Structure formats: structure tokens, C-alpha cells
Computed example of a mutant assay.
Amino acid sequence: MQVQLSGQKIEITPALRERVNGHCERLTRLESRLLELSVVLSVDKLQQRCEGTLKVPGAAPLHAEATESDMYVSIDTMFDKLVAQLRKHRDKVCDKHQREVREERQYG
């Protein structure tokens, strides 16, 4: 999976990059065929914002964002949302496949 990390009004430190890459491993454990992840970190006064877009084969991109007072917390929250969306997508795909197999056995 290709990871693109960028910042608006914030410098991407090695610690922030490491935090994002650590969470990427969590996503790849759920789904190995992920194409690309784009993460944008931004600061606006006291709000630390993290936005992420995950491209999955055969589906629309998954998007999540989180705004917190701490950048690390916003990264964690955003990845939690992406994981939930990815699990839901994976369950839909698996359920559809199982339903097709059942129908094939029933009518085939």
C-alpha cells in the first residue's frame, strides 16, 4: 500500500510519520489488497485535524476525519473510523460472496 502523508500549516515530524505508519499496519492486517492511503494533517488555531482517504479495490474510497485538541489523538480517532469502515466494507463483500454460493447450491 502506498502512503502519502502531508501537512497544512504543520511540519511532519518523524514521530508523526511513525504514528501514521504504525496505524497503516493495522489496516493492512484487515485487508491486504489496499491501494493507497492519503493522510492530511492540519492545524487551525487550537484544533488539530487529521483527514484520511483510503482507496480499496472495487469500491468507492473510504474517507474519515477527526478534529481534536491533540494531533496524536486525532490520528488515532481517524484511523479508528477508517478501520470501522473497512470492516464494514469487508463484511459486505464476504456476505455477498456467501449469498452467491448459497444461491448457486440451492438452484444449481
Rank of each mutant, 00 (worst) to 15 (best):
V39T: 04
R49T: 00
D95Q: 08
T53V: 11
V93M: 14
D91V: 01
P14E: 14
Q48C: 00
K45T: 06
K88D: 10
G108T: 04
S6P: 07
S6M: 10
Y72V: 00
Y107C: 02
Q85V: 05
Q47M: 10
V56N: 05
L27F: 13
A84P: 00
P57H: 04
Y72E: 04
K81L: 11
R90P: 06
L5E: 03
K55V: 12
E51H: 11
L54Q: 13
E51L: 11
G108K: 04
H89R: 15
E18T: 03
G108C: 03
E31S: 15
R49M: 02
G108F: 05
L16D: 10
E65A: 10
E68M: 00
M71H: 04
E51S: 14
G7Y: 03
V93N: 12
D91R: 11
V40M: 14
V83D: 08
K55I: 06
Q98I: 00
L16Q: 07
L16H: 06
E36S: 14
Q8N: 09
R102P: 01
L54A: 12
R19L: 02
L37M: 10
G52M: 06
R87C: 10
R102I: 09
F79H: 05
E36M: 15
E104G: 05
P57R: 07
L82Y: 10
M71D: 04
R17L: 03
L37Q: 08
R29Y: 15
T53R: 09
Q2G: 09
E100N: 08
A64P: 07
Q2Y: 12
D76P: 00
Q48M: 02
Q8Y: 11
V56D: 13
E68V: 00
C50K: 06
T13A: 03
Q8W: 08
A66V: 02
E65P: 02
R87D: 07
A66R: 02
A66I: 01
L16W: 05
S69V: 09
M1V: 02
K45M: 01
C50L: 07
E51G: 09
P61N: 04
Q106Y: 09
T53S: 11
R90T: 11
K88I: 06
D80R: 08
V43H: 09
T28L: 14
M71E: 09
R26H: 11
V39Y: 07
S6W: 08
E68L: 00
T28Y: 15
D76W: 00
E18N: 03
Q8S: 05
S32V: 14
L16Y: 07
S6Q: 05
G22F: 15
H97Y: 11
V3C: 05
L16V: 03
L82H: 10
Q48D: 01
R29D: 15
P61H: 12
A66W: 01
T77V: 02
Q4F: 12
V56L: 10
V83I: 13
A15M: 12
K81D: 14
Y72R: 00
V3R: 08
I12G: 05
V3T: 08
I12P: 01
R29S: 15
S74E: 05
Q85A: 11
A64C: 06
S32Q: 15
L62C: 07
H23V: 01
H23D: 07
V56W: 11
K81W: 14
Q4H: 13
T77H: 07
L35G: 10
K45C: 07
R105G: 03
C50P: 01
L35M: 15
G108H: 05
Q106F: 13
Y107A: 04
V43C: 12
R33G: 13
H23Q: 08
A66M: 03
